[in-house]
Design a protein around this nucleic acid. Structure first.
Length: 127
DNA sequence: AGCTTGACCGACC
DNA sequence: TGGTCGGCCAAGC
């Protein structure tokens, strides 16, 4: 009980999220199926923080929400979770864009040319 | 208290 | 089309 000095917010209970994180996750849950927002969009919509802060929140707590509906500005899939995300997109019907004319199987160094999210169609502005 | 890093972004070449 | 650079904001060391 004796709080010797004023450390108020140092004591955070695990399970309770920082306000900003909560806003990000809440907004993420609002993104309709088949649509996406960029990290920058989320930050701009919340009028707080920046893309990188949103990215941090998703990295820490994203597992609890539809993390695949928040993408980078170029529509590239998350490194390390590309296949997982791709499955979601295909299931939700998220507009995708082939990387280039589609499957140049011959000579393609990349084992798999992963598509990207077509932001021009899938971008959701919060309305 | 200062430097580095990060699920980023936009401009430039 | 793709790589690099600087800027941005917060957390960690």
């Amino acid at each position: 009980m004796r709080r010797v000095s004023g450390n108020r917010e140092s004591q955070e209970e695990p399970g309770e999220l920082p306000p900003f994180a909560e806003l990000v996750l809440e907004l993420t849950e609002r993104i309709p199926s088949g649509r996406v927002m960029t990290y920058g969009d989320v930050a701009e919509y919340l009028e707080e923080g920046g893309p990188r802060q949103v990215g941090r929140v998703m990295a820490l707590y994203g597992g609890a929400v539809a993390w695949w509906r928040v993408v980078r500005a170029d529509g590239a899939l998350l490194p390390g979770h590309e296949l997982r995300a791709l499955e979601r997109y295909r299931a939700e019907g998220t507009p995708l864009r082939s990387v280039r004319g589609r499957g140049p199987a011959r000579g393609s160094a990349a084992a798999e040319d992963l598509p990207r999210v077509d932001l021009s169609r899938a971008r959701w502005d919060g309305r």
